[in-house]
């Protein structure tokens, strides 16, 4: 099915070890009620874990990888009989893609917004007016001032 590389991708080996993907015995329960598998053509969690275990990196990371189709519903993690947390494996692959600079713009935008302002989104005049009319506390967007430094400190 896949050609096993002589030189495995170390990043994948790390994920296989840390996220327990190596315990997967490809039973396929993670595919059964997976919304992303059912409603798209190329998202198959079992195939993803097999590739991680075999160290086959091709197509697993990057902006066009099917990993972004996952809805993070956690059904797979609830059901896996081997104790793998499939969603954690997907998230680890997404983290790796981000680190390599190859992830969807939306992810970068949300991260930038949180680190800059503390929130996702903006305090528009419309929202300020609506919140005032509804007698809600003012929505701030300046809690983020120290966050960038906080996470970057070694």
């Amino acid at each position: 099915m896949y050609r096993i590389e002589r030189s495995r991708d170390d990043n994948l080996t790390r994920i296989a070890m840390l996220e327990m993907a190596r315990l997967c015995y490809t039973c396929g329960i993670c595919v059964g009620d997976c919304p992303a598998a059912r409603f798209s053509d190329d998202f198959n969690p079992r195939q993803i874990f097999l590739k991680v275990c075999l160290g086959v990196g091709e197509g697993l990371t990057g902006e066009d990888s099917p990993i972004w189709k996952c809805t993070t519903c956690y059904t797979c993690s609830e059901r896996c009989p081997a104790g793998v947390k499939p969603l954690d494996v997907i998230l680890a692959l997404r983290n790796l893609s981000f680190k390599q600079g190859a992830c969807p713009e939306g992810v970068k935008a949300v991260r930038a917004s949180v680190l800059e302002k503390g929130v996702v989104g903006a305090v528009t005049q419309r929202i300020t007016d609506l919140r005032k009319r509804m007698n809600l506390p003012e929505a701030g967007d300046d809690q983020g001032s120290d966050l960038e430094q906080f996470i970057s400190e070694a």
Binding site: W68, L91, N95, C103, V110, V114, P137, Q143, L147, F150
Partner: peptide, 29 residues
């Protein structure tokens, strides 16, 4: 009780997809 210093939780989907380590730090904060 309102806590004005709360930031984004952070978002378990988009933010965590970038970095699980950073997600954990901001959640802990």
């Amino acid at each position: 009780k309102d806590e004005p210093r709360f930031t984004c939780c952070p978002d378990p989907v988009m933010f965590r997809s970038a970095s699980r380590d950073d997600w954990l730090l901001l959640a802990a904060r």
